[in-house]
């Protein structure tokens, strides 16, 4: 697709500028196409993106990863992969909505068949091949360092990829996320287990159904203090869609609305 668009536009430019014969335009096009996309790829954008969501148990990784996948798909025509690598247990994991994601064109990587309801460490084997291809890869890990260990296995393929982001998701209202010491310990454990360094924080302050704008603001202030101590930028502040209009003006650069897909409606 990119090639066709490139050939077409470049062809017109070459023709209008140089009025060359179509044969030259054709060869020019092919050579410049390869140079152009080689540069793009080395430059680290357009063809690949890799986003990994890690954090404590219940920090909101799965919902956030799911929302990112849906958003990425709606933005462009590239292949979007959501890798549900929660090997700890299958409660409230993205594989629950695999069918719905597939029908929207998102490929879901998760333990195969009957193992998807199990708690055995099963890494989808096709992930390595997929990591070598051009696509938008979104990786959802299980909580804590136990969940991050899985990255050790795919580490060498991950560092080869472009557009790499490794997010530490923090909900300060969760146990073991209420003070900077716990967060420092968590970050250390996760980085050691994964063999990767975090590139940014996602602030996800909420009390699910009982969240208010005030609770978000207060919680976010706490995450800002953590970020300062950890020397990491806050890339996003994720809030449920219902709070977006009210809070967008306060955090215009980082706010991101979320739809909750994994939480049962009747709770």
């Amino acid at each position: 697709m990119e090639a066709a668009v490139y050939f077409f536009i470049n062809g017109i430019i070459l023709y209008t500028l140089h009025k060359k014969h179509w044969k030259y335009i054709f060869f020019d096009n092919i050579i410049s196409y390869y140079i152009f996309f080689f540069c793009l790829k080395k430059g680290g954008f357009l063809l690949q993106s890799t986003r990994i969501f890690s954090g404590g148990f219940g920090s909101g990784k799965s919902e956030i990863a799911l929302n990112f996948a849906l958003q990425k798909k709606s933005e462009g025509s590239g292949e979007v992969i959501l890798a549900d690598l929660d090997l700890v247990n299958p409660y409230f994991a993205s594989r629950e909505v695999k069918g719905a994601l597939n029908s929207r064109g998102i490929r879901v990587l998760c333990p195969a068949e009957e193992l998807s309801f199990g708690d055995v460490p099963n890494i989808p084997p096709e992930i390595i091949g997929i990591l070598k291809q051009d696509n938008d890869m979104i990786i959802d890990l299980a909580g804590d360092e136990i969940g991050a260990i899985v990255l050790g296995y795919i580490h060498e393929y991950l560092i080869e990829r472009q557009g790499f982001e490794f997010f530490l998701v923090i909900n300060p209202y969760r146990p073991f996320a209420g003070d900077i010491e716990s967060i420092k310990e968590l970050k250390k454990c996760l980085e050691r287990a994964s063999g990767l360094k975090f590139t940014a924080i996602i602030s996800n302050p909420n009390l699910v159904e009982e969240t208010t704008a005030d609770i978000i603001k207060k919680g976010h202030e706490k995450v800002v203090r953590y970020a300062d101590k950890l020397n990491l930028p806050i890339r996003y502040l994720t809030v449920e869609e219902r709070f977006y209009p009210e809070l967008a003006a306060f955090y215009p650069d980082i706010i991101k609305g979320l739809n909750l897909n994994l939480r049962p409606q009747w709770l």
Binding site: F57, G58, N171, Y173, R174, P175, N206, L207, V208, E210
Partner: peptide, 14 residues
Amino acid sequence: EKVLMKGNEALAEG
């Protein structure tokens, strides 16, 4: 102030 807990965590804390 409330805390967001999993059932298992809440039980253990209790």
